[in-house]
Design a protein around this nucleic acid. Structure first.
Length: 317
DNA sequence: GGCTAACGTGCCAGTCGATA
DNA sequence: TATCGACTGGCACGTTAGCC
């Protein structure tokens, strides 16, 4: 299965944007190589995009498929949404510049945008993050891609994996054990069934709220909120785990029970985005290490870290 | 509705014994 | 003495159920 270029186009960027940081954050080696970013656009057809920097304010995007014709306009709109190149973060930066946990990292991370993904994939990410360290969670997800995803070859790129679809999961439930998901496998199956039975649908992902997603057994508030942040850029209700709750409590000197309230007061409608960025700022260190870094004032990511961090994940997995 | 304990799973560092 | 593998306990976590 070789995907070939259907169309090549230029995307103009009108906001502060750092392509390399955006492409690198929380990404795998089969999607980012340091220069080019591969974006799965459709896993059924399959269709992908390859994106690279054309100039400071322009990106070159190639859409690749096995078919000779695809709905180019639909996929271009999707590429723009995934990359967030039309997302103006000026208000967010104003808060970032003043915030005591964030301000030291603005010079390093300004221009980074969250890469969105499908609701299904966002839920897989969230489920893998349950009760797991950063490394553990992303290794689980990587194994799901390798064991259950589709292996395809992309022209002038090479081999890549497309995320497994709900159907792939439901027809290979026995393979989930090899992904070392533990009890999370049950939740993945429940979510896959929800998609297969049209209880959840990609087409409605922008309409869903937390209450819709937590109806699936195994999906709680954290997973639902994270999925909405990643899939729909819904930042109003931040995913706050124990890790972030403790950090908020220490940094802003508030009881843990007031952590979410404090966070929303600081970030307003940007709470969800700032939750994700916090993990990048602190290199997703374990709680004790993250608190030690906060105490030392090292509240910025180590870009050239040899460790596995959100920004270097693609070098390791 | 809010709080808390229990649950469950993988990771990781430390320890110990066997072996070369 | 060095290396290796097995084992163990603590840690990192979100969800769930039960209690008030």
């Amino acid at each position: 299965m070789v995907l070939q270029t259907i169309v090549t186009t230029i995307l103009d960027i009108k906001v502060d944007y750092d392509f390399k940081l955006t492409a690198a954050a929380y990404n795998f080696s089969w999607y980012f190589n340091g220069k080019e970013l591969l974006i799965p656009l459709s896993c059924e057809e399959p269709v992908v995009a390859l994106v690279k920097e054309e100039s400071e304010k322009q990106l070159q995007a190639r859409i690749l498929s096995m078919k000779k014709e695809v709905d180019v306009d639909k996929y271009l709109a999707k590429i723009k949404f995934v990359l967030g190149i039309e997302e103006d973060l000026k208000e967010f930066y104003n808060i970032w510049a003043k915030d005591k946990l964030f301000r030291k990292s603005l010079g390093i991370l300004k221009g980074i945008h969250l890469r969105s993904t499908s609701l299904w994939n966002a839920l897989l990410i969230g489920i893998c993050q349950q009760n797991a360290s950063f490394k553990q969670g992303w290794k689980m997800l990587a194994m799901m891609y390798k064991i259950l995803g589709k292996k395809v070859t992309v022209e002038r790129w090479g081999m890549t994996y497309l995320p497994p679809s709900p159907r792939d999961i439901l027809s290979n439930i026995n393979l989930l054990k090899a992904c070392r998901l533990g009890y999370r496998a049950g939740t993945v199956v429940n979510v896959a069934k929800a998609f297969a039975n049209n209880v959840l649908s990609e087409d409605k992902s922008s309409e869903y709220v937390e209450e819709d997603l937590v109806k699936v057994k195994g999906v709680g508030s954290y997973t639902a909120r994270l999925a909405l942040v990643l899939a729909a850029r819904k930042y109003e209700r931040p995913p706050i785990d124990r890790w972030l709750r403790k950090i908020i409590s220490v940094v802003y000197k508030v009881p843990e029970r007031l952590a979410e309230e404090t966070w929303v007061k600081i970030w307003g409608k940007w709470g969800g985005l700032s939750s994700v960025i916090t993990t990048i700022i602190l290199d997703a260190e374990t709680l004790s290490n993250a608190l030690a870094r906060v105490a030392k004032g090292r509240t910025y990511p180590i870009l050239e870290s040899k460790e596995m961090t959100p920004l270097t994940l693609w070098k390791h997995v």
